[in-house]
């Protein structure tokens, strides 16, 4: 299988303090890769290496080699001598990201998808309605909102908002999807919906997910990356070969104390 992500000796520091120390990994271009670890171990920072989001925070330094396959073979993401990476807006269009709590824009459901499409993806106006519809269908939200497209997105329920955020990322036709604890702020029911949706998406996209729950990591992950203190300590391939107890042993904590 081709690799979607290649990282080699990646270091990230904020104001001189190392958060990610020498991570090397290669992730294939289908299925769900789950990064787990105790809070503060650098999971989110590692995820944000891939869309260069760390750079938006002051005092950040990233080093190492990061290559992504964004549709045209592996390409370097960070500037280096003789390397001119894609501009940031383009990179971030191709590397979709969904956050812990739903972050819909304070505009209508339709505009939440349409404005990024028009501005970031430069989608022609004539295709706009179709692409918004397709994105909403992809996340199973179309039936719920087809009559209320011009309602403020903040009026949707938490699970619906999170699916809208996914639809917004999918509408931009990304090559990779990053998920930062995508169900952390949802109730049990909404969590099940979103997990189901992610499993379906994993057949079409490489998904890289940070998870706060061992159960979720074991059920969803095609491979698990265990992080500790900014370093990748274990890598487990294949589903259901590990138990929650073994996993928490690897992390050095009791399962209920993970968060």
């Amino acid at each position: 299988m081709k690799a979607a992500v290649e990282m080699e000796d990646v270091h990230v520091a904020f104001n001189g303090r190392d958060v990610v120390r020498g991570v090397s990994a290669s992730l294939p271009d289908r299925g769900i890769s789950v990064i787990i670890g105790r809070s503060g171990c650098g999971k989110t920072t590692l995820l944000r290496v891939l869309n260069r989001l760390n750079e938006e925070f002051p005092g950040c330094r990233t080093s190492g080699r990061v290559e992504l396959n964004l549709g045209a073979g592996p390409e370097a993401v960070y500037p280096a001598p003789g390397v001119r990476p894609r501009p940031l807006p383009e990179l971030r269009r191709l590397v979709g990201m969904v956050f812990q709590s739903p972050n819909v824009f304070p505009v209508s459901v339709f505009h939440n998808i349409a404005i990024p499409l028009l501005t970031v993806a430069e989608c022609p106006k004539s295709e706009l309605a179709d692409r918004v519809r397709k994105a909403l269908e992809d996340v199973g939200l179309w039936k719920d909102v087809m009559e209320r497209l011009h309602m403020p997105a903040e009026h949707l329920s938490g699970g619906q908002q999170q699916r809208l955020c996914l639809a917004r990322a999918l509408a931009l036709e990304p090559s990779i999807l990053l998920l930062d604890e995508p169900t952390a702020s949802l109730d049990v029911h909404a969590t099940a919906e979103v997990e189901e949706l992610l499993r379906n998406l994993a057949e079409r996209y490489p998904l890289i997910m940070v998870s706060h729950s061992l159960r979720q990591a074991l059920q969803m992950g095609d491979r698990l990356l265990v992080m500790e203190n900014g370093m990748l300590t274990h890598r487990l391939e294949g589903r259901a070969s590990t138990t929650e107890r073994e996993l928490s042993g690897l992390l050095g904590v009791a399962p209920e104390r993970l968060l």
Partner: peptide
């Protein structure tokens, strides 16, 4: 709107123009 808006490929100015000023 940060950092979610930036992660979609918007610049801060885009966010200001499309989502902050109209509100």
């Amino acid at each position: 709107l940060l950092p979610g808006g930036l992660a979609l490929g918007f610049t801060r100015m885009d966010l200001m123009w499309f989502f902050v000023l109209p509100e």
